[in-house]
Amino acid sequence: MLNGIYGRKQDVSIKSIEQPSHDSSDYHDLINAMVSEVETVVMGKTHQVRLALACLFANGHLLIEDLPGMGKTTLAHTLAGVLGFSFKRIQFTSDLLPADIIGAPIFDGREQRFEFQPGPVFSQLLLADEINRATPKAQSALLEAMEERQVSVDGTTHPLPVPFFVIATQNPISQTGTFPLPESQLDRFLMRIELGYPAHEAERRILQGSNPRESISELKQILGLDQLRLIQQRVESILVADPLLDYVQRLVHFSRQCSDFDFGLSPRGALALVRSARAWALIEGRDYVIPEDVQQVLPCVAEHRLRGGRGHSGHRGITLTRQLIDAVDVLE
C-alpha cells in the first residue's frame, strides 16, 4: 500500500526491470515511485493516479471527466512528464477540423509536391482537452485514430507512434454548445475517471505550495519506453483464474439480466474489465487478479458503458456500478 513511505525524490533501482521479470514486486516499487512522483504535483489523488497508470499499463485510453479547475490537465501533464513521453495537447473547440488533429498535406514549394504535415495526434501522449466541445466530425477523427492507431490521409496510411496514449477531458456540466460523446465512442476509452474535490489536507498543501505548472517542469522521468513495454507485457501475463472469470461473468450477466440496466456490458466491456483488473493487480504488486481488483476498476471501466433503465437518463454510472458490485456475489 502507499502510505507515504516513499520520499519525494527517492531513487528506485529502475535497472532491475530491464529484463522481463516474473516477480511483480519489482514492478511494484517502480510503480510506487511513479505514483509518488505524480503526487508531488497532483496532490491527494492517489487512487485516481493509480487508475490512470493502470489504464496506461493496460494499453487503453483515458477519459477524465470533471469540473474545470479540478486538475485534469495537470494530471495529464504530470503523467507525460513522469513517463518521458512526447506530449501534445489539443484544445477542442467547435470550429476544430479533423485536419487540425491528424494533419494535412501541405504544398512544398521547393519540392513541387504535397507533403503530409503530421498533426498533433502524432505524439506518444495526446491530451484532448474538452473533447465534447468539438463537432462530432472532429471527435470521430480522433476517436478513429485512437481505435486504429493509425491515420489515413489521401490514401496513405501513417502509423501513429508507439505507445499512443490519449487522455481526453470533458466537462460534465454546462453542456450548452457541446456535443456529448455517444456511447459507441465512449466505449473507445478503457476508463473514465473523475477526480473530485481534493481532501482537506491535500487542498491545504495545494494552497501552500507553488504553482503546480512549475513543478511539472521539475518532474523526473521514472519510466522509459522499453520499461513501459515490459510492464504492458507483464500485465498481459497476470494470471486470471477461473473463479475470477466466473465472477466477471456473473457481473456481466447481471448487468444484462437486471431490468435496472437499459443494456448490459458488451463483451468488449467485459474484456476491458479483465484487462484493467490485470493492470490493477500489477500495481498492487500481485501476479494474479483477485475480486477486489475487479471491484476497484469496475466503476471507471463500466460506468460509461452502462445506462440505467426505468426512465434514467444520461449517465448514472456510479450508482449503477455500485449496485452491480453490491448485488453480485463475489464467491457464489
Partner: peptide, 21 residues
C-alpha cells in the same frame, strides 16, 4: 463459506458484493 457462516452467527454477515479482503 463455513467461515463466513460462523462469523455471521457472531453478528458480522458478509454482504454478497463484499470481497474477502
Amino acid at each position: 463459506l463455513k467461515f463466513c457462516k460462523r462469523m455471521a452467527a457472531k453478528g458480522i454477515r458478509r454482504m454478497p458484493g463484499e470481497s474477502a479482503g
